[in-house]
Design a protein around this nucleic acid. Structure first.
Lengths: 237, 237
DNA sequence: ACCTGAACACCGTTCAAGT
DNA sequence: ACCTGAACACCGTTCAAGT
């Protein structure tokens, strides 16, 4: 049962980087609550106490988790443009940068919430912001408007939240109970009832079927269009 | 030292509601990590194990924390309009609703991150969404556009994140080191350096002085204007 | 009916001891 | 130099026992 790791694996010395990568794997598999000094150690074939050689403690390990994921975000953007040509629409380029960030974060569903608990992201996101700045400046943004855009887009890309709106619609729901639920809702909350009713009329016919990706892109386009309007009109704020 | 609570206080029977309110107070005072079955019990003059009579466990207590704060958000909105007059600009009304929500959440700095860890907000936010729906429908929004707006504004109001952008500027920083830091930044990251430089030129002269409130309002106005443009042009998406 | 005390499993952390 | 084992404080949770 106690399968000893191969000699090679056993001998590979621990390092801060290996610890953090192992912790990310544990979080991906068991959520952030599953990340324990002992569990991360076990996934490395080592006692949990051995980790203290390479990270100061649990808190720094969690910070490291955030940094590791955000480095992944930054790395995933390196094959995207860092500027636009004169007269070129900057929005598709910034859009791609934003969607790429989202792709990475969706692979680590625990990450946005953990990022939110940390006060800051440290410096690891700077290259990503530098890239975004490059795109915006080359498109003719003013200093102030770039600053505002960094806040508006940065919080959207790195701190996006999913499904706050959902009112616990059970994954598998009987159509009859769904209709009944809409009826109840409509009785006391006519406006929400109207929205939900319009959703049930769509192709799928299912309730609570919000397309997170589509909603993210809608909100993103609203922001991109709004920033472009302000750039074109020369408004600093 | 062991000050016994007054007889009256002692006799007031525990209830789910009192437990949750006590837990919110503990979180406000010591952060969400300070919320412990034992610490919440102590703040009520009771052993931690007594809480299990009123909440199923720690997880339900945290869910209750989120619900309590979100009920506060909903309650804080009741003196705001639920619709607009024909031809009235809906944006200032929706804006007030959003800013009111933010005000409440800023009093519980731990709340957004905790909300993010919970999959859903349960049904407690429905009245708030109902109110927002009422405003949007009365302003002539289509069903689809209201749906999109609920996502765009809801995630912004309830899941907003602060200061993801900041690169750990120490609270108290010597101006000389600040200038040096900008120089280093500018060397490898000219675009970010330009933004930071433009910030240091403002009235305060301090570095890293991002005005979260102003940035929130800027991003909010971008979204509100974008939604209005889509409403006016009759675009469903 | 409601709370307490003791107990157990698990976690973060320290540190002397191993190799 | 790097890891292990034992130990300690603290936490979530259960449950028999108190009042």
């Amino acid at each position: 049962m106690t399968q000893p790791a191969t000699a090679t694996t056993r001998r590979t010395p621990l390092s801060r980087d290996r610890v953090l990568r192992a912790a990310v794997d544990v979080a991906d598999a068991h959520g952030v609550d599953g990340v324990t000094m002992r569990s991360v150690g076990e996934s490395l074939g080592v006692e949990g106490m051995a980790l203290y050689r390479h990270v100061a403690g649990k808190d720094e390990l969690l910070d490291g988790l955030v940094s590791t994921v955000l480095e992944e975000v930054t790395a995933a953007a390196t094959d995207l443009p860092t500027s636009v040509d004169h007269g070129e629409d900057w929005r598709p380029v910034a859009r791609a940068l934003m969607l790429r960030a989202r792709e990475v974060l969706l692979q680590h569903p625990w990450a946005p919430a953990l990022i939110a608990t940390r006060g800051t992201t440290g410096g690891v996101t700077l290259p990503w912001y530098e890239q975004l700045c490059g795109i915006l400046f080359s498109a003719g943004f003013s200093d102030d408007l770039v600053h505002h855009a960094l806040h508006a887009l940065g919080s959207r890309a790195l701190g996006f939240s999913t499904e706050l709106f959902a009112a616990d619609s059970p994954a598998e729901e009987d159509p009859a109970t769904a209709v009944e639920r809409v009826r109840e809702l409509t009785a006391t909350m006519p406006n929400i009832g109207r929205v939900v009713a319009s959703m049930t009329h769509d192709a799928t016919g299912t309730l609570g079927g919000c397309d997170d990706q589509a909603e993210f892109e809608f909100g993103l386009d609203v922001v991109l269009d709004g920033l472009e309007a302000r750039r074109a009109s020369g408004a600093g704020a």
